[in-house]
Nucleic acid binder design. Structure first.
Length: 290
DNA sequence: ACCACATCCTGTTAGC
DNA sequence: TGCTAACAGGATGTGG
């Protein structure tokens, strides 16, 4: 599933490839994929036809393909979405919902599960998306995250998936970051100590940067704009590793459903109780031994 | 304002 | 072997 590193990998390639290319024709646009767009499918067709790409940006997990005609094609890949730029002679895959003819090449959106989105956006792009801070930006820090989590009673795992707080983290990297920071996913977000949140903020950045260096995680559907898988799936520590040995302590990785999403964690490296309570329990245990 | 849960969708897998 | 049911989860809408 495309999260920040996967979308950024696609963005980098498209931003290097698309500018100055003109949309000759909108060959195909599935109206059912147009969601929460200020303009309808027909208007999107009109605005794209004849327009030239200027640059490709990312906001959270959204891609914004800016056009010469003052506006941008807004795309979200959902769960199973693929955005590929390929030679027009390459046969189109099943579930292709958008085809832009660029001359010798086509930009194609393929999305079997249809969780993705096609929309039009006008500047300032950020207004309608309600996105929180980008975890790879300079604005993101332990202090900022601590303030965002203050007073929140939801599980930290659920909070990390809230795009209005931090934009770009999905189920894989939420689990990986919590493991790296040694924080149990069910801990109450607003109860984390400042030290824990500092650790978590650093873990989020590290996990995302490492994945980006591996060109993303290809767990099920993800491929980049050239159709190539990433390699970060070989470096995951908890996601998809239920009942496998923790790489740190050899305990078995557990899976629990939190907020309707599966969470993977090491029960030993990520204790359920906050640090102070854990310390008291340990002290209590010592007293008990005496 | 915040939170939990249902909803959309279809390929894959588990179970009978 | 073949069918059905459960499962996966992005963002969003609803109701509490």
């Amino acid at each position: 599933m495309p999260e920040l590193p996967e979308v950024e990998t696609i963005r980098r390639y498209l931003n290097a490839s698309l500018p100055h290319w003109q949309v000759q024709a909108v060959v195909h646009l599935d109206e059912r994929m147009v969601k929460h767009s200020p303009v309808g499918p027909e208007e999107i067709r009109d605005r794209l036809t004849g327009a030239t790409f200027t640059r490709v940006e990312r906001m959270g997990k959204f891609l914004l393909l800016s056009m010469s005609t003052n506006g941008a094609l807004l795309l979200h890949l959902g769960m199973s979405g693929r955005l590929v730029l390929e030679d027009s002679v390459v046969p189109r895959q099943r579930h292709t919902h958008l085809v832009l003819d660029l001359g010798s090449r086509e930009l194609r959106l393929v999305d079997p599960r249809r969780f993705g989105r096609i929309a039009w956006a006008t500047r300032p792009y950020s207004q309608s998306l309600h996105l929180g801070v980008d975890p790879l930006s300079r604005r993101f820090s332990g202090q900022v995250l601590y303030q965002l989590l203050a007073g929140r009673t939801t599980a930290i795992k659920t909070a990390l998936l809230n795009q209005q707080l931090v934009a770009g983290i999905g189920n894989i990297y939420a689990d990986e970051a919590l493991y790296a920071a040694r924080i149990h996913p069910a801990r109450v977000a607003g109860h984390l100590t400042r030290e824990e949140v500092d650790r978590l903020a650093r873990a989020i950045r590290k996990v995302l940067r490492v994945s980006l260096a591996h060109r993303g995680t290809s767990f099920s559907d993800y491929v980049d704009a050239l159709g190539h898988p990433g390699a970060n799936q070989y470096y995951l520590n908890v996601y998809g590793r239920e009942q496998l040995a923790c790489r740190r302590c050899k305990n078995l990785i557990q899976r629990e459903v939190l907020g309707g999403r599966s969470s993977h964690f090491c029960p030993r490296c990520q204790p359920q109780l906050p640090p102070a309570v854990t310390t008291m329990v340990e002290q209590g245990a010592r007293h008990a031994e005496i």
